[in-house]
Design a binder for these strands. Structure first.
Length: 825
DNA sequence: ATCCTCCCCTAC
DNA sequence: TAAGGTAGGGGAGGAT
């Protein structure tokens, strides 16, 4: 897979701009071409973009899809996520580009692609840079760095951007959060108007009705939206394109070696040294007819079904379709329990009653709407509890619906295979088989004691109930996280101990940043290792897989929750060292955090204290006091929920800095991996801040720049000081609030720090400074006791005070600055 | 009894 | 080549 040296680097494009009309016509033709070819197999037209790998950011013209096709036609590569092999970012709009994330990869306008194609040669991208102070050297295209194993610093990123299981997990969690968040606010249901026009053909059920929706072979269906010619054929989504690999003696030996260790009947027996071991993420029903199953190796699938067609992953497509699915349902009700990106339970009893619908009327309507909106088929199952609904879906599939009525439950259940019960997997099934049990009917008449002896108390009991169609667990609409973990069991082949340590640190950073995203802290760290089994061959059958392993874990619970990523790193490392494992034998690593506690709402921020305290002090005080609780609102699902628009600011709240941020992200001094997402900002308040503070906040929170307002400096002409939420409090009143703040927070919230510093600065500007030296002394003494984050916060406040002093008096106050802290410098 | 740690199992 | 993650339920067995 060597890449040819790129041709035509020199500026041979001088004067091409004069070709305006010609170029436009060419581009229009390209767009036409796109329309014609999307449905067909991609035809190779040139090699212009050999060695070029693009990532499209934001909306572009041509669209991302069109660029993807163009790259395929002209020898380039299209990335859905940035990886170490991405050579160019394509973007049209500066605000859409999160520059800090993109690193040194040049950001180029899409016309670079279309112009290059029009001229049939690779033009110099420098002329197409989206903005100017970028790198102008061509990226090294000849020897691309591919993050192959966990020894590479970019491995984690690279791996995640290709992992279907990672995507499934993260999307599932996001939709749970999405529904939780939507339920926080009162909401209307615009979809319901459509229900009045639905033809009424049956009786409204008088018993509770739970619906289970499941998309049919989700990944395949999404892929077939743009490949209609493959409908009706056996199709599988895999990374590999071909089931047969090129001959390779060494590999064949490795596979044979591994097969010898595998027990009879294991799927590995179906493959040989030339079979692809890429996993089937999803397969069409036509493929299932031949015995192909999700999770099977492609090589094995092709043995069962030689005509099988493979299609690549489309992670963006899965996200889009599942969002449409959830939004469609959420426009009718929020009594939804999200299961995963393509599956959910919905309580529909009330909806059916309110709109006089039979189960069938509703099922037809909603399935039709989902199909129209997503282009993908789904199946629905109905029953009087989640178990019945789920079992009904089995019968409904594919592309159908089934209602398991209460009176049919007993006979329907009797025929159900135990393997079809949720919670019964490979291990449970074989235990049950050893008891001679195969169907729910068998279990219905089995004794509780026998089941419990074999499966345990709880499992035995639930299985007996399940076999009778009983499910006491109600739908769970909201959701509280109990653990956060990151685990990699692929590509782990360390050559030195430091590679191992570095990777543990990446995992630590990963879980830490996920923990921050959900605004939680943890007390327990668990390290999980997969170690090559003693008799397993050194190399695995699957390329860089984990092979046969022993798995061990060790945990450490701390007295207090972990306040800093460095502490986490230290704990992980200590655990690893204690486990006394040879790094070369590692095949998998995972870091898990448990004993979680909510960070923001439980530990009130300074602003919350202020709201409460000033209420006590000024019972008739200004309106800002009553708005304190707003800040306690749990974060909204940032990635999927609506966000980002400035809240309307009704009068009377204009000066409330406490109204400034909703959903702010914690800033940590140490942890650069914490991505600061756009906060919801009250732009009016932002504009009223002095320019340097404004600039800082814009920078810190990575906001788009609002239209600047004339600075309010020049003390003589400055308008009267803004009424901050602190105004009206004298120092003796403020002091205990600050003291509480110090005790309640692990780290000062950046917003609170700026808020306080700004109050001090305004005090200086309004010549209200008698108390300032005392206050600063108080802060110095108390902040000195705290960790380095507080020291930094103190310096920020001092800077703001001095700015105010200089502005008003032309000089600075004498304030102590240096802490006896090694970390600060 | 109840809790904790270290597993295993399951689902998507 | 290939991208074998992640959260939750729960059991065994020891500590309290």
């Amino acid at each position: 897979m060597s890449r040819r040296r790129q041709q035509n680097r020199d500026d041979e494009d001088n004067g091409f701009a004069e070709w305006g009309g010609y170029m436009e016509a060419k581009k229009a033709k390209l767009r036409e071409q796109y329309k014609e070819t999307t449905a067909k197999e991609v035809e190779k037209l040139s090699d212009i973009f050999t060695g070029v790998s693009i990532l499209v950011n934001g909306l572009t013209n041509p669209s991302s899809d069109q660029l993807k096709l163009l790259m395929a036609q002209h020898g380039g590569t299209f990335h859905l996520y940035q990886s170490s092999t991405t050579t160019h970012i394509i973007a049209s709009n500066l605000p859409n580009v999160k520059i800090n994330k993109l690193g040194s990869v040049p950001i180029v306008k899409p016309s670079w692609i279309t112009d290059s194609i029009a001229l049939n040669k690779l033009l110099d991208y420098k002329r197409y840079l989206l903005y100017t102070n970028q790198t102008t050297t061509q990226p090294p295209l000849d020897f691309p760095v591919v993050a192959k194993t966990a020894s590479d610093p970019h491995f984690l990123e690279e791996f995640y951007s290709n992992s279907r299981l990672h995507l499934i997990s993260t999307l599932g969690a996001e939709y749970k959060q999405f529904i939780s968040d939507l339920r926080e606010k009162p909401r209307d249901f615009p979809g319901r108007v459509k229900l009045s026009h639905v033809p009424k053909t049956g009786a409204v059920p008088q018993t509770p009705v739970v619906m289970h929706i499941d998309m049919d072979c989700f990944f395949v269906s999404v892929g077939l939206r743009t490949r209609p010619e493959l409908r009706g054929l056996p199709v599988a989504v895999t990374h590999a394109r071909r089931a047969q690999l090129n001959p390779n003696k060494e590999r064949e030996e490795t596979v044979t070696l591994n097969m010898d260790r595998m027990p009879e009947g294991v799927e590995l027996r179906m493959i040989d040294g030339r079979s692809s071991m890429s996993e089937v993420a999803s397969c069409s029903y036509e493929a299932r007819k031949c015995g192909v199953k999700n999770g099977m190796f492609l090589g094995a699938a092709a043995k069962l079904c030689p005509q099988i067609k493979t299609i690549p992953y489309d992670f963006e497509g899965y996200k889009e379709v599942s969002m449409v699915l959830y939004k469609t349902l959420a426009s009718y009700t929020l009594n939804i329990e999200a299961v995963s990106c393509d599956e959910m339970y919905v309580e529909v009893s009330d909806l059916l009653k309110s709109y006089d619908l039979s189960v069938e009327d509703w099922a037809n309507h909603i399935r039709d709407e989902i199909k129209t909106a997503t282009g993908c088929p789904c199946s629905t199952g109905f029953g009087s509890n989640r178990l019945q609904a789920r079992l009904a879906t089995k019968k409904a599939k594919p592309d159908g619906s089934y209602y398991l009525k209460p009176e049919d439950v007993e006979s329907y259940l009797a025929e159900i295979a135990l393997a079809d019960l949720p919670g019964v997997g490979y291990a449970t099934l074989s235990k049950l088989k050893s008891l001679g049990l195969e169907t729910c009917g068998d279990v219905q008449v089995a004794s509780l004691g026998v089941l419990q002896r074999e499966l345990g108390a709880k499992m035995g009991e639930t299985l007996l109930e399940q076999a009778k169609g009983i499910d006491r667990k109600p739908l769970n609409y909201t959701h509280e996280r109990k653990s956060v973990s990151a685990e990699i069991n692929y590509g782990i082949r360390f050559k030195t101990i430091n590679e191992c340590y570095n990777f543990l640190e990446s995992l630590g950073n990963e879980v830490w940043s996920r923990l921050n995203e959900i605004k939680m802290r943890a007390k327990t760290v668990t390290l999980k290792l997969m170690i090559r089994a003693a008799d397993a061959p050194l190399e695995t059958a699957k390329f860089l897989g984990h092979g046969l392993c022993d798995s061990v874990s060790k945990s450490q619970t701390l007295a207090h929750h972990i306040s800093d990523v460095k502490i986490l790193h230290r704990e992980v490392r200590t655990l690893y060292d204690k486990m006394n494992v040879n790094y070369a034998e590692l095949r998998g690593l995972g870091v898990q955090l448990t004993k979680l506690e909510k960070l923001a709402p439980i530990n009130p921020t300074l602003s919350n204290f202020l709201q409460q305290e000033s209420k006590k002090i000024q019972p008739t005080g200004d309106k800002t006091a009553s708005r304190g609780r707003e800040l306690v609102r749990p974060p909204s699902g940032e990635k999927v929920a609506t966000r980002g628009r400035p809240r309307k600011n009704s009068k009377g709240q204009k000066n409330s800095l406490s109204n400034f941020f909703k959903n702010k992200k914690e800033i940590t001094g140490q942890n650069k991996s914490v991505e600061i997402k756009k906060a919801e900002v009250d732009l009016n308040v932002l504009q009223e801040l002095p320019p340097e503070i404004r600039a800082e906040i814009i920078k810190e929170y990575n906001l788009e720049t609002p239209a600047p307002k004339p600075p309010l400096e020049s003390p003589e002409t400055a308008p009267p000081a803004k009424k901050s939420p602190f105004s009206g409090l004298n120092w003796p009143q403020l002091k205990p609030i600050l003291y509480k703040w110090l005790q309640s927070e692990q780290k000062p919230d950046n917003y609170d720090v700026v808020l306080l510093g700004e109050h001090f600065r305004q005090s200086a500007i309004t010549r209200d400074i008698d108390w300032l030296p005392t206050a600063m002394n108080f802060l110095y003494r108390n902040f000195a006791q705290m960790n380095c984050c507080w020291h930094k916060a103190y310096h920020k406040i001092v800077d703001l005070v001095q700015q105010g002093m200089v502005a008003r008096y032309g000089g600075t106050l004498l304030i102590k600055r240096d802490f006896d802290c090694l970390n600060c410098f």
